[in-house]
């Protein structure tokens, strides 16, 4: 890949009091490629995602989006730059319904200029667009009017992923997106990822499941105790290789 990376993080470090969670980590995400971010618990994967998503500010290092450096100082800023994130904690609002969650903080308004100023919601339009979006992604939810809190774990996750996919035109960060899912739904998430990749989205996938890495990822970056210990092309490695990187038995640098 010689083109400008969709997202490049260079020399990212982040400490929490005495604990250094990330030490000089650099990663690149490319359009149309899926990058796995691997590592044991506490290796710094989620911290990295939160730095890219604007939730944490790194202590050192730079982040480039499409070649331009940005200091991503809020999750709103990240979204404006085209970075969508599905966090481990999902970030769906339980009392709101499916459509309300999909359009959260991106509400459609009606009533022209004044409606936009006061934020008069166009509920019908949001519901219709939500239905179209979800069915386009082949995500099935029994009712869009039901509160997300009353849905099953897998359905909640599908809503969170659907939101990221629907809005993430450029860069999508997925932190353990299939953690609570059954076999069939996991497959559907993998299909969604492949779909995004084919449309040119740069995807970062955090997972503990090596089969998923081999199935859908082009490239893998492994963190060990806050440092990048390996960066490999997935076709070149085996499952055992990845596991030995993760446990720190081996590293490429």
């Amino acid at each position: 890949m010689s083109t400008t990376p969709a997202l490049a993080a260079v020399g990212i470090s982040k400490s929490f009091r005495a604990v250094q969670a990330l030490k000089d980590v650099s990663i690149e995400l490319h359009h149309g490629r899926v990058t796995a971010l691997l590592g044991d618990n506490g290796a710094g994967k989620s911290t990295m995602v939160k730095c890219l998503a604007g939730i944490y500010q790194p202590d050192a290092g730079s982040i480039f989006v499409e070649g331009t450096e940005h200091r991503i100082n809020s999750s709103r800023h990240a979204r404006e730059l085209g970075i969508e994130t599905v966090h481990q904690a999902l970030s769906v609002i339980d009392p709101l319904d499916v459509a309300e969650n999909l359009f959260l903080n991106r509400e459609k308004t009606r009533g022209g200029w004044l409606g936009e100023r006061i934020g008069l919601l166009d509920k019908r339009r949001m519901r219709e667009e939500c239905a179209a979006t979800l069915s386009g992604l082949d995500i099935r939810i029994p009712s869009l009017r039901r509160s997300v809190g009353s849905l099953s774990g897998g359905q909640r996750q599908a809503v969170a992923i659907g939101r990221a996919v629907a809005w993430g035109q450029k860069i999508v960060l997925l932190d353990e997106p299939a953690a609570a899912l059954g076999v069939e739904q996991t497959q559907r998430v993998l299909d969604l990822i492949a779909n995004m990749r084919d449309q040119g989205v740069a995807v970062l996938l955090i997972t503990h499941n090596m089969d998923r890495v081999l199935a859908v990822c082009d490239q893998a970056i492994v963190l060990y105790q806050g440092r990048k210990c390996a960066e490999v092309d997935v076709p070149d490695v085996t499952k055992d290789d990845l596991v030995s990187f993760i446990t720190g038995a081996r590293g490429t640098g």
């Binding site: 998503a53 939730i55 979204r79 994130t85 970030s91 769906v92 609002i93 934020g119 919601l121």
Partner: peptide, 23 residues
Amino acid sequence: HLRWGRHVLSTGADRDAANAVGI
């Protein structure tokens, strides 16, 4: 019926999640 009300409810339901979508 206003964006504000929806953001009030979201903030009260789960402040971290509301922050994460940029509210």
